[in-house]
């Protein structure tokens, strides 16, 4: 054995980023997402109009009297509402995704690792949640426990963890049979460590992709709930703007179109990023 120059270690993260960067629409999605997030974080400070204040005559079309997006049926500044709504929509999207990942990964990991009766029970529970009509179920939760932001987040999380659980279980079933897991067992590793330190990191890529997409669907879900009026009346969200203005859709279509476009662009951007992550993290798509 000679002292040949050792190949430079390339971090898996850099490699994944290069794959991601090669996908142009994903990069576009990421840029849009960053802009929206910046707007949600700094927007209210830069544009301090209170979204609940009546600032001008109702139904002023966009551009009227300097209000870029116009005003809604109560004369509130639509731009201020969109900016503040972005916060709520993004926070709910992220938090609901976190909730469903925590539930889904835990259940999927236990089922896939222990197999047998535990798997049977957990997967039947998962299937039970899968066949429930999700919108109806979350409406029941919100209606029962009150329409506060945490409760809405929880409701969305509770109805959307099943996909994560199934993906996690499938990955665990595959990975638990691999030799390095056996080797790790053979060196006396405890079950909890096997599950979360040995197997889970190897199962992460598809889970990450799924969670990215889930942020998008959680935002849509929240919009759906608030459209139906199941929302915290003390905060503005995009769905809520659409919901409260829906009667005037024929007279002032922009009050519905603008928040609708905001949702559309955000969810599209998230989906593009999710798609890019899939390319970057899926080894089967590598080096094409």
């Amino acid at each position: 054995m000679t002292d040949e120059p050792i190949q430079k270690a390339r971090s898996p993260f850099i490699e994944a980023w290069e794959m991601f960067a090669r996908n142009r629409s994903a990069v576009a999605g990421l840029i849009i997402l960053v802009l929206i997030s910046l707007g949600a974080v700094f927007g209210p400070a830069l544009y301090p109009t209170d979204p609940f204040d009546m600032v001008w005559a109702p139904f002023s079309p966009p551009g009227d009297a300097g209000f870029i997006f116009g005003t809604d049926y109560l004369g509130r500044d639509l731009l201020a509402m969109i900016i503040n709504g972005a916060r709520v929509s993004l926070i709910i999207g992220l938090a609901a995704a976190v909730v469903s990942i925590v539930i889904g990964v835990t259940i999927g990991a236990l089922a896939g690792f222990y197999r047998g009766i535990i798997e049977e029970i957990l997967m039947r529970i998962t299937e039970f949640f899968q066949v429930l009509p999700t919108l109806l179920f979350s409406m029941v939760i919100v209606a029962l426990f009150g329409a506060s932001l945490p409760m809405i987040t929880l409701a969305i999380g509770i109805v959307s963890w099943t996909a994560v659980a199934r993906i996690t279980r499938a990955e665990f079933l595959r990975i638990r049979e691999l030799e390095y897991v056996m080797a790790s067992r053979a060196s006396g590793t405890k079950n909890a460590k096997l599950m979360f330190r040995i197997i889970l990191p190897n199962a992460l890529p598809p889970i990450i992709v799924q969670s990215a997409l889930m942020v998008g669907s959680a935002i849509l879900f929240e919009a759906g709930l608030s459209f139906l009026g199941l929302t915290d009346p003390n905060v503005v969200s995009w769905g809520q703007i659409i919901g409260s203005n829906r009667q005037y859709i024929l007279d002032a279509s922009y009050t519905v179109t603008i928040p609708g476009l905001a949702i559309f662009v955000t969810v599209l951007a998230i989906s593009l990023v999710g798609d890019g992550l899939n390319d970057a993290l899926n080894p089967k798509l590598r080096s094409r």
């Binding site: 691999l178 030799e179 390095y180 056996m182 080797a183 067992r185 053979a186 060196s187 006396g188 590793t189």
Partner: peptide, 16 residues
């Protein structure tokens, strides 16, 4: 396991 008796496997490519 791993302390008093340990084991090495056939496939070094996949055992780590």
């Amino acid at each position: 396991r791993g302390n008093d008796i340990s084991m090495i496997f056939q496939e070094p490519m996949t055992s780590l």
